[in-house]
């Protein structure tokens, strides 16, 4: 059915669960998996000036956290035995990063993590997912 699956993660628990499901689906289909870690670039104007002094330290913490997350992901991949590559990208918008990478890698299925939003109107689907669905010409599996 599917030959090459791509799953984005931002290092959160929701992202990790998506990777798990992506791995399982890839194994069932005998497909390759590409894990895409999307990091948000640091936008200096969005940080209050009192906090700017801590930026170096914060950045360091972030990188450390990501390294830990990556190690966990790699263990998961090794345990599953799926043919897997891991790419990192920096983009403000998850949907754009996923769309571009899926095109470049020739993927045929995108697995999207279940980022749900709750608010005044109740439960709503994540806007990045909607953007991706409008942009992409690939099938998208939206998880819960």
């Amino acid at each position: 059915m599917f030959r090459h699956i791509i799953v984005p993660t931002d290092g959160s628990q929701v992202g990790e669960r998506a990777v798990e499901q992506g791995l399982e689906l890839a194994r069932a289909n005998g497909a390759k998996l590409t894990i895409l870690t999307v990091l948000q670039p640091l936008i200096i104007y969005s940080v209050a000036h009192e906090l700017v002094v801590d930026l170096g330290e914060r950045q360091h913490e972030e990188t450390e956290r990501h390294k830990r997350d990556d190690r966990r992901l790699e263990e998961m991949v090794r345990a599953s035995g799926v043919d897997c590559t891991h790419i990192e990208a920096e983009d403000m918008h998850l949907s754009e990063a996923v769309h571009q990478t899926a095109l470049a890698q020739g993927c045929d299925l995108i697995v999207m993590p279940a980022h749900e939003r709750y608010g005044l109107l109740g439960k709503a689907v994540d806007s990045e997912t909607v953007k991706l669905l409008s942009k992409s010409h690939l099938p998208v599996l939206v998880l819960r």
């Binding site: 689907v125 099938p139 998208v140 599996l141």
Partner: peptide, 13 residues
């Protein structure tokens, strides 16, 4: 459907 569903949805193209 994506907003209301409790199960994963595969959207085809």
């Amino acid at each position: 459907l994506l907003s209301n569903s409790n199960v994963p949805v595969l959207v085809l193209h």
